[in-house]
């Protein structure tokens, strides 16, 4: 297979950047999207050009490192799939493929397709945890947790923190990411103790990072590789409302 790639190239954070065209030749249908880029990069290096910088690590869809907007869709548009698990057989021979980085003020581009998602870490640092120290915890079976609640918490906890939700949202909102973490912990009895503080701290940090607001378009849910539900955003809003009411009375 052969493709024409239009790729965002940007030397560093201060560079303005531009789309550049490359030819991807002799691509095999069984290659993953990132392997296709590997091949293109090998060709660039052979020509003495700098390869296209892009983030990836586990390449099995769980680490959340890869972060490409492919033909205008975060992770390329295959449901529940990260870019690293997307394979070239889903593209048409001869197609032009546009590749861009996540675009959001809170995710500045570091180089080419690599962005800085430290904002997500700072949101978790603000309250995305249960305040227990190592040791001194009760026996694991001391607090029963209903299977339904526990499964729901796991649904939210499945988030891989890739940032596709932000990339796809027309407002670059991080609500799905934050809601997933808040819900994971607020749903569990262990996490309920500090649930008000958690939701307010995390939302405050999210706002400070310069993400946009949720306008309930549902794009985030549609591109999420772990198919995290929009319902968690409603749940977080409720938790925030309760915290606001409690703080105001």
């Amino acid at each position: 297979m052969n493709f024409t790639l239009r790729v965002w190239r940007q030397k560093d954070a201060n560079d303005t950047g531009a789309m550049v065209e490359y030819a991807a030749k002799d691509i095999i249908a069984d290659m993953s999207f990132l392997e296709m880029l590997d091949v293109v990069n090998e060709g660039l290096i052979a020509k003495g050009e700098e390869p296209i910088a892009f983030d990836s690590d586990c390449r099995e869809g769980i680490c959340g490192t890869c972060s490409l907007v492919i033909n205008g869709i975060a992770h390329g548009g295959q449901r529940g799939t990260t870019a690293c698990q997307l394979h070239m057989r889903h593209f048409e021979d001869g197609q032009t493929i546009t590749i861009e980085p996540w675009r959001a003020r809170a995710f500045p581009v570091l180089k080419d397709l690599v962005t800085d998602r430290g904002a997500f870490d700072r949101i978790v640092q603000a309250g995305g945890f249960i305040s227990v120290n190592t040791g001194g915890t009760p026996d694991a079976n001391a607090i029963p947790v209903g299977k339904v609640e526990s499964d729901k918490a796991m649904d939210a906890a499945a988030c891989i923190g890739c940032g596709a939700c932000v990339a796809a949202c027309k407002n670059a909102s991080a609500m799905l990411f934050v809601a997933a973490k808040v819900s994971h912990l607020n749903l569990l009895p262990q996490g309920k103790v500090e649930k008000d503080k958690r939701v307010t701290s995390m939302v405050t940090q999210m706002d400070a990072e310069g993400f946009g607001n949720c306008t309930v378009t549902g794009s985030c849910e549609a591109v999420c590789p772990k198919e995290i539900s929009l319902n968690f955003i409603a749940r977080m809003n409720r938790d925030y409302g309760v915290a606001l009411l409690k703080a105001s009375t």
Partner: peptide, 22 residues
């Protein structure tokens, strides 16, 4: 043994039975 206690306290959503136990 302690690891499991620690992880549960941190909110790791291990699989559970309907009775609520691990």
């Amino acid at each position: 043994v302690n690891i499991i206690d620690q992880c549960v306290a941190q909110g790791v959503p291990f699989a559970r039975e309907y009775g609520g136990l691990l």
